[in-house]
Design a protein around this nucleic acid. Structure first.
Length: 873
DNA sequence: TCCTCTGCT
DNA sequence: TGGCGAGCAGAGGAT
């Protein structure tokens, strides 16, 4: 994990000034701050060996906080004359030291620190903040520690979550509440009169936050205190706001630029001389001097490619069998002809083994050499470490080689360690542990760099308890996905073209009618132009706005449907045009020899689901009949075979039942009831037999909402009922399903404590949003905390099921084709259908035992549209 | 490259 | 106080 140090320049300079005796150069320039600051900096460099670091400074006096509160920092003493010029000297010195400096007009160093911290959190870096300002304690997290100066600046106290709790019994987010109540004399933040640290802490222990304290004034003991709180609610809330560090300052910050770099010796020495900082120079040369390699060698220099060993054809024929006999661990990378891995060809290999690196030109290799390397790749006993095994499986299938013995997929490892990261190129994977790594000159360097980080990945996986998930689920899934992609699904091209022609006719007709309605031609696909026609020319009432103008989305148009004939036509046009562009044309462009070969992305989603691209076969229309017809074009590849679709019934609600152990929900599944009908019966207080369609629909929306982190707003919008009504549904639901309520509350509390959630199979997702100062962001984090264990566990179970199904299908004439989150699509020879359906269902239902039954329903048919339920009983 | 819109679970 | 159910991919327009 990379480490970043963030220093509060103003705060530390102030501390240094008051802590150290006056020092001056011969011509009278004050230098005590320079001395103190640089000493600290060099010590941190030596002891902490940061990969990245930065000093933040206040830029000007006019801060956004003054706009909020005119007296902000008004009391503050004028900066002493001996300190003032030292800021410029210090910045000059730091620049000579190649230390990154950040300033932002109108904002304080605090806000820069908060912003950098939040960026570092996103990258999951270990973050250390050095400051004398206790406000920074609000930034503490599992990966962020705040070091507060004690006595001058040479001694610091480390505050992590534990230390903070020990000292104040507060969570980091409550620091701003503390300030809100007690204020801060040095910043002239008022707080509540008569409330000091003692009282503020007592109130927070009891009520948690400023808002909650103010909501419960009546319950607080002490008449005077009650009165003070009552008369100063504004001050308390304002003070809290002033103490909140701002994350979203208008400053482009590229964390990569904050990488530690060794200063240019001459420049730095000259600057030290200028300010006569002899002891600083001595420390620098003692520990960081030119001849002293290794002591503080920045990590960017650690990446030393293993020596490149060039082998002749004969030498390869000796070396390859040798590796195979030794069962040597190989790190393997390759280059290919580019484009889609489903048909790209491998051109060269990079190999790292035993401290040496190699390049094998594949295109021109002798057949014997190719054969020897193939054997190595196919030998399950020869462990291979790779960056992206699924792509490698695919590429090797094109060479008619079956890769076996992948012992570490570093890309998948990185995904499990942080499923929200989005870069998985080898260089990015290497940078995680060797931050300064530059571009690779060739494949050998790439392989040797990967080899040097492989163990670090393994350690991190072990620490996070993710090794089993990697080796027993994700890695074995990769070859299965590669096979599914390779197999592809057949598309009835003439039928698709015909469908496209029908759409085209309809589209042209609608287009003309819309132009006639509008009285002019325009681009219907442009929301902007459409908005102009609807709301300006035709005078329809705008319902809502987007960032760039009027909203013209389906909800809006639905509201306006009756007001003008153009509206319905636009809705129809949109539907058809989506089908035409995305599905007809999109699909036709992806067809190779009558089939489409999607790519399943295994490292994209934050929850552990797969995603599907080029083409996306996980969003083929089904809801509306017209779109659903598209499914007719998806057929088995072989004449006479049939498609089998098996999907989990209500898997997410079953997982919720398992997690929450809610009596009603569990009973509902154990009795195999229709869960939405049962919910309607509970919420509306009527027998199940009397539940109407409409009540069931409402209950269904509630059940769905639960999984996503229910809000009355969202439910109300979905059901088209007032928010208040939605609220009563939710309240009644939670009254009847107390276990669910308790579970959802507990998971949020736990997530806040740990800053992360896990699925049943231990998949991890960190949720930095939970400690974001913005409440909207925080609530977003809470919904993630509720949804991810459920959605992620469903993804886990499906992946386990796929491993079982793939194995179970081997004896049969059947191919796994698609996974659509809770559904598997398989093509199968009709004579094997009965048995295949049986084993698929068994594998899916027994993939992972929950405390309620898992049910998979099978359907079968000649294409993906005409599917009929298939049951064995 | 971002935004809006729409398709799926 | 205003803003919001979760997770994705792709097309087309505007910038």
């Amino acid at each position: 994990m990379a480490k970043i140090l963030i220093l509060d320049g103003n705060s530390l300079a102030n501390r240094a000034f008051y802590a150290l005796p006056m020092m001056t150069t011969a011509d009278g320039k004050p230098t005590n701050v320079l001395h103190g600051f640089m000493t600290m900096l060099l010590r941190l460099l030596l002891e902490q060996k940061p990969d990245y670091w930065v000093v933040a400074f206040d830029k000007t006096k006019a801060t956004v906080r003054i706009e909020q509160y005119a007296d902000y920092k008004a009391q503050r003493k004028e900066t002493p004359d001996a300190l003032k010029p030292q800021f410029d000297f210090l910045k000059e010195l730091l620049t000579a030291f190649a230390m990154p400096i950040l300033e932002c007009p109108g904002y304080e160093a605090d806000d820069i620190i908060a912003t950098v911290t939040s960026l570092a959190e996103q990258r999951e870096w270990e973050t250390q903040i050095y400051t004398g300002d206790r406000d920074a304690l609000q930034l503490i997290s599992p990966r962020t520690t705040v070091y507060l100066t004690r006595k001058g600046i040479s001694e610091v106290d480390a505050y992590d979550e534990g230390a903070l709790y020990e000292k104040y019994q507060l969570r980091p987010a409550q620091i701003i509440d503390l300030k809100g109540l007690m204020g801060d004399a040095s910043d002239n933040i008022p707080g509540v009169p008569g409330v000091g640290e003692k009282t503020a802490l007592k109130l927070l222990w009891e009520y948690g936050s400023v808002e909650n304290v103010l909501d419960n004034i009546d319950k607080i003991s002490g008449k005077k205190l009650q009165e003070n709180l009552r008369n100063n609610t504004d001050k308390a809330l304002l003070s809290k706001k002033l103490a909140t560090m701002l994350y979203d300052i208008p400053l482009e910050i590229n964390l990569d630029r904050l990488v530690y770099r060794r200063p240019d010796e001459k420049t730095f020495t000259a600057a030290l001389d200028k300010y006569v900082l002899k002891s600083v120079a001595r420390i620098w040369h003692e520990h960081h001097g030119a001849g002293e390699e290794g002591k503080d060698t920045p990590r960017e220099e650690v990446l030393k490619p293993w020596p490149l060993c060039e082998l002749t054809g004969e030498e390869w024929l000796v070396r390859l069998p040798q590796w195979q006999a030794d069962q040597a661990t190989l790190v393997v990378t390759c280059a290919n002809t580019g484009g889609n891995p489903h048909w790209a060809r491998i051109t060269a290999w990079g190999i790292a083994a035993g401290g040496e690196s190699f390049i094998l030109n594949w295109t021109d290799a002798a057949p014997e050499v190719q054969m020897a390397f193939s054997q190595l790749l196919e030998d399950p006993e020869v462990p291979k470490q790779v960056a992206d095994s699924k792509v490698l499986y695919s590429l090797l299938l094109n060479e008619e080689i079956t890769l076996r013995g992948v012992s570490l997929d570093i890309g998948l490892a990185a995904y499990l360690i942080n499923p929200t990261r989005n870069k998985f190129e080898p260089l990015e994977l290497v940078k995680e542990y060797i931050p300064g790594a530059g571009e690779f000159a060739n494949l050998a360097e790439e392989a040797s760099a990967l080899a040097q980080v492989a163990d670090s990945y393994k350690e991190t996986l072990e620490e996070l308890g993710l090794s089993a998930l990697l080796h027993e689920m994700e890695e074995p899934l990769s070859p299965i996905l590669a096979e599914m992609e390779k197999q592809g699904i057949a598309v009835d091209v003439p039928r698709l073209q015909e469908f496209g022609q029908e759409l085209t006719v309809e589209l042209q007709r609608l287009e003309q009618e819309i132009y006639a309605d509008a009285g002019e031609t325009f681009n219907i696909n442009s929301p902007q132009q459409l908005g102009h026609i609807l709301f300006e020319k035709l005078g329809l009432p705008p319902m809502k706005k987007t960032k760039t103008g009027y909203s013209t989305d389906a909800d809006t148009l639905e509201e306006l449907r009756d007001q003008h004939s153009i509206v319905e036509r636009v809705l129809d046009y949109r539907q058809l045009s989506k089908l035409m562009s995305t599905y007809v044309n999109g699909l036709l462009a992806q067809i190779h020899e009558g089939r489409v070969h999607t790519t399943f992305q295994q490292t994209v989603t934050a929850t552990g689901r797969l995603s599907s691209t080029e083409p996306n076969l996980q969003n083929i229309p089904i809801r509306l009949e017209l779109g659903r017809l598209l499914r007719k074009v998806f057929t088995p590849t072989q004449e006479g075979w049939v498609l089998l679709s098996a999907d989990y019934s209500q898997i997410e609600l079953r997982i919720l039942a398992h997690y929450s152990q809610d009596k009603v929900l569990c009973e509902s599944f154990s009795l195999n009831q229709d869960v939405h009908t049962r919910t309607a019966s509970e919420v509306f207080g009527i027998p199940m037999a009397e539940v109407t369609k409409d009540l069931r629909r409402k209950a269904k929306a509630v059940n769905f909402g639960l999984i996503y982190g229910l809000t009355d707003f969202g439910l109300g919008r979905d059901l088209g009922v007032p928010r208040k009504e939605a609220k009563t549904y939710i309240e009644t639901y939670f009254h009847r399903y107390e276990g669910v309520k308790r579970y959802l509350e507990e998971i949020v509390v736990k997530a806040k404590e740990e800053g992360q959630v896990r699925t049943l199979l231990n998949r991890l997702r960190r949720i930095p949003e939970l400690r974001h100062p913005n409440r909207v962001q925080r609530q977003f984090g809470e919904r993630i905390a509720m949804n991810t264990p459920i959605q992620g566990t469903a993804a886990d179970i499906m992946k386990l099921a796929m491993l079982g199904v793939a194995e179970a299908l081997k004896p049969y004439r059947a191919n796994l084709l698609l996974q659509v989150h809770d559904e598997l699509v398989i093509e199968v020879a009709p004579e094997d259908l009965e048995e295949v359906a049986k084993v698929v269902r068994e594998e899916m239902e027994s993939a992972f035992p929950l405390s309620v039954p898992l049910i998979a329903d099978c359907k079968t048919g000649p294409n993906w549209y005409n599917m009929e339920s298939y049951s064995l009983e």
